[in-house]
Design a protein around this nucleic acid. Structure first.
Length: 485
RNA sequence: GGCCCCGUGGUCAAGCGGUCAAGACAUCGCCCUUUCACGGCGGUAACAGGAGUUCGAUUCUCCUCGGGGUCACCA
């Protein structure tokens, strides 16, 4: 076989959720791993469902995760056009070719008639299948009715018996009896091809060698193969992919708004982390590695590692992975990502190196930053019970004396830098034979006004500066005094 | 309902006839530590059920059960 060509063929009907994203990713990875080409095709044969701007969402999402396509609507290619509505004149001749060969036929049954017959058979508890009502219409009658402007569709003529089958790379041989298959519509009354037909024609005329798509098409693929056979075309290799589930019984879907790629980005997730996590949902490299860049995925990807069963999306693990990526960010990159949130919290004027030191190992999602650093800009109204900590051997009484010691010493400190404050505070603790915690806990509480903080007393003192630190320390001392300490 | 597919801990997932059934997330405990977090160590936790094939089944076959998909002039 020649060059591998795969395609991602979304319909512009909404947004890209993580399931779509992963399908695109795997399709891309398969092509790239095999030195092939990845094609982007827009399937918009259903005008009624067209959503303006949806194509841009597709472009932006793919670009956002670093996928580049070798051929597509915006960049063209030798198999264009890459938008189905622009190829609409292409399909009818192929359908007619099938009619000539007896593999398809014109059908004049109206939708109403069909609904009626369908309802009738369902009432009898039967499974409805098109009854081939129009299959044997005389040629002259067909021509006369077409000439008279009567609406028609073209249907595939599926054999009444025999086996239709195909081989799937992941699922193996799948076969179904032709009697189970319906004579599906190829060309709709509006002259447009159905998705099924357009898909086959496009995949063939675009030279797609590996058809990768969701496994909801598993059941209809035998029909596609019948079409390939009717045309005498070489069949593509099929690779059906599992869906990503929200829970055991529901796929991630457009209804789950938070499953959109863009939403995760705006929630403070890193594109690289999303790609990495999603790639591992339904595929494994065969070894213990779990961190992959896109290029590394291109190298490692193989269908052997693809799962046959659906995977449930686990937000907790995505968050964990995001944290791993954030942890490994350089100070510069971290600060760039964090800056909008610094601004939001009003800490953008503070020392970003110290912020980085305090935050980069604890932030799992960037949007969490304002909540974590809020105390830096405004001192929370806290209770003196916070001064009590067993392990640090401190309570309000001890805190009062520690602050009486620390405040004047800090006020007299010539330089306000990390080393100076550190040496001063710890030096005092050592002199008096107290635990570091006994010294630092009260200071930190007075400085922060909350029990849990990023960074310790010294970092906080640096961040908020000398003046504010002293003000807060005095306030803390005052608070204790009011309580009788 | 017919047909097709799937079924290892809460989740992802290795395993492809012989393993004390990996690893990761989550969870619990301990340690480190000026809090939290990070990190380190350890624990709890799974082959859906039943027949068969075999000296031996998580692995192969069949049935049951469970879940999903599909049966449109939607894609």
């Amino acid at each position: 076989m020649g060059t591998v060509r795969t395609r991602f063929a979304p319909s512009p009907t909404g947004f890209m959720h993580l399931g779509n994203l992963r399908s695109a990713l795997y399709t891309y990875l398969y092509a790239k791993h095999n030195g092939g080409r990845f094609i982007l095709r827009i399937e918009d044969t259903d005008q009624a469902r067209y959503v303006p701007g949806a194509v841009d969402v597709i472009y932006n999402t793919l670009r956002g995760i670093g996928i580049r396509w070798d051929e597509g609507p915006d960049i063209g290619g030798e198999y264009g056009p890459y938008v189905q509505s622009e190829r609409k004149d292409l399909y009818l001749p192929y359908a007619k070719q099938l009619v000539e060969a007896g593999k398809a036929y014109y059908c004049f049954c109206t939708k109403d008639e069909l609904d009626e017959r369908r309802a009738e058979s369902e009432k009898k508890g039967e499974v409805w299948k098109y009854d081939k009502h129009c299959l044997n219409l005389p040629k002259e009658e067909v021509e006369r009715r077409i000439a008279a402007g009567e609406p028609y569709v073209i249907r595939q003529n599926v054999p009444e018996s025999g086996e239709a089958s195909f081989d799937d790379i992941i699922y193996g041989h799948i076969s179904v009896d032709c009697s189970e298959l319906d004579d599906m519509i190829l060309i709709k009354a509006d002259g447009m091809p159905t998705y099924n037909f357009a898909n086959v024609i496009d995949d063939h005329t675009m030279g797609i060698t590996h058809v990768m798509r969701g496994n909801e098409y598993l059941a209809s693929t035998p029909k596609y193969n019948l079409l390939y056979e009717a045309f005498g075309w070489e069949k593509p290799v099929y690779i059906h992919m599992t869906p990503i589930m929200r829970d055991a019984q529901h796929k991630l879907s457009k209804r789950d708004g938070d499953a959109y790629y863009e939403d995760y980005i705006s929630k403070g997730y890193l594109s690289e982390a999303i790609v990495n996590y999603v790639a591992l949902l339904g595929w494994n490299p065969g070894d213990e590695r779990e961190f992959f860049t896109l290029p590394e995925l291109e190298k490692a990807f193989s269908v052997e590692g693809m799962s046959k069963s659906p995977a449930i999306f686990d937000p907790a693990k995505l968050t964990w992975m995001n944290q791993q990526y954030i942890k490994n960010l350089s100070e510069e990159d971290f600060t760039r990502y964090a800056m909008p949130y610094y601004k939001q919290a009003g800490v953008d004027g503070m020392n970003t190196s110290i912020l980085f030191k305090c935050l980069h190992e604890r932030v799992d999602v960037f949007t969490a930053i304002p909540g974590i650093v809020g105390f830096l800009t405004s001192l929370p109204d806290y209770d003196i019970s916070l001064f009590t900590n067993k392990k640090s051997k401190t309570d309000p009484g001890i805190a009062a004396s520690v602050l009486d010691l620390a405040i004047p010493a800090l006020e007299n400190l010539p330089a306000w830098d990390e080393t100076a404050v550190h040496d001063l505070l710890l030096g005092m603790a050592q002199e008096r034979g107290m635990k570091n915690g006994t010294m630092l806990w009260p200071v930190r509480i007075a400085l922060a006004g909350q029990e849990v903080t990023p960074g310790g007393a010294i970092e906080i003192a640096m961040l908020i500066g000398r003046e504010e630190s002293l003000r807060r320390l005095h306030a803390g001392r005052e608070k204790l005094r009011e309580a009788g300490y």
